[in-house]
């Protein structure tokens, strides 16, 4: 009940703020432009691709790279979006209103998280719509596209959980965003290890985000990768809940 009330309140506030809309518009405009360039390159390469026995198709050359680009944008977008979640409430004094109502920390964290996640998933749906609009004119690998979309959704959910956790530790939203960005980049830095796994230890390789995102972008859905994102989300949200639960003691 309290979770639903917070979710509805957060969604309402999110929809009324201008900057999430501006961010969404900028992301879609950038990705739309890049899709046009990718489609142009794909059309130019048709003759050469036709000679290859297992040539990459529209999904490999346009759709999945577009989603991969969105993943890179999300590294910056999600901390910007999540920084207000708890730090902004704390700074504005409205967190006291929520605490004075005896709302459990779990409900406050989950309500805010789910509202932001819903907004990000709507943005992801609009991004996926870009290649889907060309589906009647081309051949889409639906399985690969679905796996890549799942991968990006899990990435967004993971990054958002990290962002909310960072937001729970400060009353300064920019500091929360910087902290979330630093952590995100640390997790993303595994991209080098992902490309050269022999250079990284098994633990470092396993905790890096790209290690688990790349298989999904290639169309391989493994329980190992799903478990990784599940653990990341659960761990980050638990940290946020624990910190907020101590708000009454810490002040």
């Amino acid at each position: 009940m309290s979770l639903l009330a917070i979710l509805r309140l957060e969604l309402r506030r999110l929809l009324l703020r201008p900057w999430p809309w501006l961010l969404a518009a900028a992301v879609l405009a950038w990705l739309g432009w890049n899709e046009l360039l990718a489609v142009g390159a794909f059309l130019k390469a048709q003759d050469r691709l036709a000679l290859l026995p297992a040539a990459p198709g529209f999904t490999d050359i346009v759709a999945v790279p577009l989603l991969a680009q969105f993943a890179e944008i999300a590294l910056l977008l999600v901390p910007l979006l999540s920084m207000q979640a708890l730090a902004g409430e704390r700074r504005a004094g409205t967190l006291a209103l929520l605490l004075a109502q005896g709302l459990p920390a779990r409900s406050i964290v989950l309500g805010k998280y789910l509202a932001l996640l819903l907004w990000l998933l709507v943005l992801l749906a609009l991004v996926v719509l870009l290649p889907l609009l060309l589906a009647p004119a081309t051949h889409l690998d639906w399985g690969k596209l679905a796996a890549a979309t799942l991968g990006i959704a899990l990435l967004l959910a993971g990054l958002l959980a990290v962002g909310v956790a960072c937001s729970s530790y400060t009353r300064q939203p920019p500091l929360a965003a910087a902290l979330a960005l630093a952590l995100t980049l640390a997790l993303w830095a595994g991209v080098a290890q992902g490309r050269a796994p022999q250079l990284a230890g098994p633990v470092l390789g396993w905790i890096s985000l790209p290690t688990h995102l790349q298989p999904l972008l290639r169309g391989w859905v493994g329980t190992d990768d799903l478990a990784y994102f599940g653990i990341l989300i659960a761990l980050a949200l638990s940290i946020a809940t624990h910190r907020l639960g101590r708000e009454r003691e810490l002040g």
Partner: peptide, 15 residues
């Protein structure tokens, strides 16, 4: 059971 008005009456500005 409790109604609380904090100092400076914090409100959600978007609403």
């Amino acid at each position: 059971h409790i109604g609380y008005l904090p100092e400076h009456a914090p409100l959600w500005p978007e609403l």
